[in-house]
Amino acid sequence: MKIFKSILLIGLTLLLFNCHADDDQSKENRTPSAFVLTEGAATNIGIPFNWTASIDPDDDDVVYAVYLNNNLLIEDLNALTYVIEYSLFVFGENTILVIASDSSGGATEQELVVNLIS
């Protein structure tokens, strides 16, 4: 019985010394990859904006948000395109911002400036 207690004590001691403080910490989140934002051909409804897929190195799902002149138009978008209606644009410069974000708070953004003339 004394040998069993000794082996148990040695085993528990080894187990305690092999535990590290960083074992309980999760990995640092990495942001989704860069993507390319482009302006499509104008339609009778508006102007489509397209982008390539942003890939998350942590395999998190990536969703997109689209802004026009700092105003949120849509969020949690899974598509790689969005049509902005003409009535939302102002004459002159308009800034389109697309943000790709993952479920862990990482984000990557691309901006495009278009000039709307009458």
Rank of each mutant, 00 (worst) to 15 (best):
F4L: 15
S6H: 11
L8C: 10
L8R: 14
L9A: 08
I10Q: 01
L12A: 05
L14S: 08
L14N: 07
L14A: 09
L15C: 12
L16I: 14
C19I: 15
A21Y: 14
D22H: 15
S26I: 14
K27N: 15
R30N: 11
P32A: 03
S33W: 04
F35E: 00
F35V: 06
F35C: 08
V36W: 07
L37A: 04
T38Q: 11
E39D: 02
E39F: 08
G40A: 03
G40S: 09
T43A: 05
I45Q: 02
I45E: 09
I45A: 07
N50A: 11
N50E: 14
W51N: 02
T52L: 02
D58Q: 02
D59Q: 05
D60C: 05
D60K: 07
V63L: 03
V66C: 02
Y67M: 12
L68R: 00
I74C: 05
E75I: 06
A79F: 15
L80R: 12
V83A: 13
I84A: 01
Y86T: 06
Y86E: 00
L88G: 01
F89P: 04
V90S: 06
F91W: 07
G92W: 12
G92H: 10
G92M: 06
E93A: 12
E93R: 13
T95C: 04
I99C: 08
A100P: 03
A100V: 04
S101G: 06
D102I: 01
G105N: 08
A107I: 06
Q110V: 05
E111L: 05
E111A: 09
E111S: 04
L112R: 09
V113T: 10
S118G: 07
